[in-house]
Computed example of a mutant assay.
Amino acid sequence: MIKILGATTAAMLIAGLIPGTAVARQSAVATPSTASAGGCMVLAGSVTAAGDHAYKTVVAGTPSRVLASGTLGRGVYPAGAARISQSMTWGDDGISLSFVSGDTVLGDALYRAQYTTGDDGVVDGTVTRVGGGWGNFVAIEGASYWDSVVRRGNAYGLTSDGTLYRWTVDSKGVWRNKVSAPGFAAVKAMTLISSTLTYDTFLANTRGGALYTIHIPTGAPMKPVVKQIRSSTWQGFETLISQQCGNYGTLLLGIDRDTHLGYLYAVGHATGPTTVIQSFGKVSTTFADPVYFHWDDGNATAKPPFGE
């Protein structure tokens, strides 16, 4: 049973930012170790029109295919309420229970979901209102860096006027020290591809069709560095979802919300215009849900993404 709570959570646990809070669901998440992108996977999550959490495990190949798909949690949110979601953390107990946590914007407020569920999709947990003022945000994401322990955590949000915000997430999960940088109004979609001790990097496409990296040093003041990867043809994607592909780089899923089609790419380590991009073409399924995001592995032994 999911309970919608109205009280603001002053010190919420950001499990989507702080890894190691759940055991990995190895049946759905793969960590390829080969240099080739073929066979790598990206775990795409979605919020359905009914408010369910769903998943598709997309495998790179010729053709690319869906290895597994289904509903994880039923009735997590009110039907039609979700607008955007950060990456959500999904782990399991190795037997029958899954553990899910992460942030979603419902209407103009930010909510945190934390629940457990079994194979029947019945959920037990809460969706807690964190705070209002999120009506003009068009993207949210979390980023963290850890080795043996968590070294830092950050949260990001992009508004419709092109302002990119960053918060520092402390050890208790509280968002602090909000800073911002303008100039990103052309961005259509963005996805995290790198988190190190000193910077985060997003891959972003623009309405004009260009593909860029947005390199954001963690120091103050916030001064993103933008590099062009490609100059055209990327304008069709309203959603970008990425996952580390072994030592190769990044497996990238672009979703065209107009046609409900997805296209898969392997992006080598980002080096500006010399970045190698391998296309795997159209994925043999449709993407018709209203909100898409990336399912993060809850395994404490996983490594932060390193796509730049």
Rank of each mutant, 00 (worst) to 15 (best):
A68F: 03
L67Q: 12
I84M: 03
A113I: 14
S69L: 11
G38A: 14
S101F: 05
A54Y: 01
Q114F: 08
T126I: 15
G107M: 03
G118Q: 08
A50I: 02
T48F: 03
G131M: 00
R25G: 00
S64L: 08
G91H: 03
P19Q: 05
S46M: 05
V100P: 00
G70K: 02
Q86K: 11
W90I: 11
I18A: 11
T71S: 12
T126W: 06
G102A: 06
G80A: 10
Q86F: 09
G125A: 06
D93A: 02
T34H: 07
V76E: 08
V105W: 00
D52Y: 00
G39D: 04
P63F: 13
V100M: 12
V105M: 01
A30N: 06
Y115D: 06
I84C: 02
V29L: 11
G73Q: 09
D92P: 00
S36K: 12
G20F: 01
G39N: 08
D103F: 09
R112I: 01
T89Q: 11
L17M: 09
I18L: 08
D108W: 00
G39I: 05
V59F: 04
S98D: 14
R112V: 01
S85M: 03
S64Y: 09
T126G: 14
Y77C: 07
G70A: 02
G73I: 15
R25E: 03
G125E: 07
R74P: 08
D93Y: 00
A22Q: 10
Y77N: 13
A82W: 05
A24S: 14
T128M: 07
D124Y: 15
A30K: 09
G73W: 07
A35M: 11
S96K: 09
S85P: 03
T71Y: 10
V130D: 11
S96N: 14
